[in-house]
Amino acid sequence: MALQRVAALAEVPEGGNKAFDACGKSVLLCRTAAGVFAVENMCSHALAHLEGGKVKGPHIFCPLHGVRFDMRTGEPNGTLTRKPITVFPVSVEGDDVLVELPDA
């Protein structure tokens, strides 16, 4: 895994999310009062993009069917899927959002 700069913190809306292309992956950055999180921009239930889904605390809700995922672990909550989403370690250094991504 390699640490990559994915975006400037100012590019990620407070209380929201935005997808960025990094190392050939669509990485969704989410910014909440609980922190900044990075997940693969793909719901494990219907293979829809998670971008635009509601974020609350450490959770994101799929905009298609409302499946809730814990962005700390990737674990789903509910009955639509038991398959977790991929989460990536993230850190903020100054105004840079750095994400640990698999080596290309």
Rank of each mutant, 00 (worst) to 15 (best):
L3D: 10
L3M: 12
Q4A: 15
R5N: 06
R5Q: 07
V6S: 12
A7L: 00
A7D: 03
A8Y: 11
A8D: 13
L9I: 05
A10R: 14
A10T: 08
A10C: 13
E11T: 04
E11H: 00
P13L: 13
E14I: 04
E14A: 13
E14G: 03
G15A: 10
G16C: 03
K18M: 10
A19H: 00
F20R: 00
D21M: 13
A22M: 00
G24K: 01
S26T: 14
L28A: 13
L29P: 01
L29V: 01
L29I: 07
C30M: 15
R31G: 07
R31I: 02
A33C: 06
A33G: 11
A33S: 02
A33Y: 06
A33D: 14
A34L: 00
A34Q: 11
G35H: 00
G35R: 00
G35I: 06
V36R: 01
V36H: 07
V36E: 08
F37G: 05
F37M: 09
V39D: 02
E40F: 09
E40M: 07
E40R: 08
M42Y: 09
C43Q: 08
C43N: 10
S44A: 15
S44H: 00
H45V: 08
A46T: 04
A46I: 02
L47R: 14
L47H: 11
L47E: 05
A48C: 14
L50A: 12
L50I: 05
L50P: 07
E51T: 13
E51A: 07
G52S: 02
G52H: 03
G52Q: 07
G53S: 05
G53A: 10
K54F: 12
K54D: 09
G57Y: 11
G57L: 10
P58A: 15
H59E: 14
H59P: 00
I60K: 11
I60Q: 08
I60V: 15
F61K: 04
F61A: 11
H65L: 14
H65V: 04
G66V: 13
V67D: 04
F69C: 08
F69K: 06
D70T: 07
D70G: 10
D70K: 04
D70S: 11
M71H: 03
M71V: 07
R72D: 04
R72T: 11
T73Y: 12
T73Q: 03
T73W: 09
E75W: 06
N77E: 15
N77M: 13
G78R: 08
G78A: 00
T79P: 06
T79R: 14
L80T: 06
L80A: 15
L80C: 13
T81R: 04
T81K: 06
T81Q: 02
K83N: 08
K83H: 14
K83R: 15
P84Q: 09
P84D: 13
T86C: 14
T86Y: 05
V87E: 04
V87T: 15
V87K: 09
F88V: 06
P89N: 08
V90C: 01
S91W: 07
S91R: 15
S91L: 10
V92Y: 01
V92R: 03
V92P: 01
E93Q: 13
E93G: 01
D96P: 06
V97F: 09
L98G: 07
L98E: 05
L98T: 03
V99P: 09
V99E: 04
V99D: 11
E100T: 09
E100K: 07
L101R: 09
P102M: 01
P102L: 03
A104F: 06
A104V: 09
A104N: 13
A104Y: 07
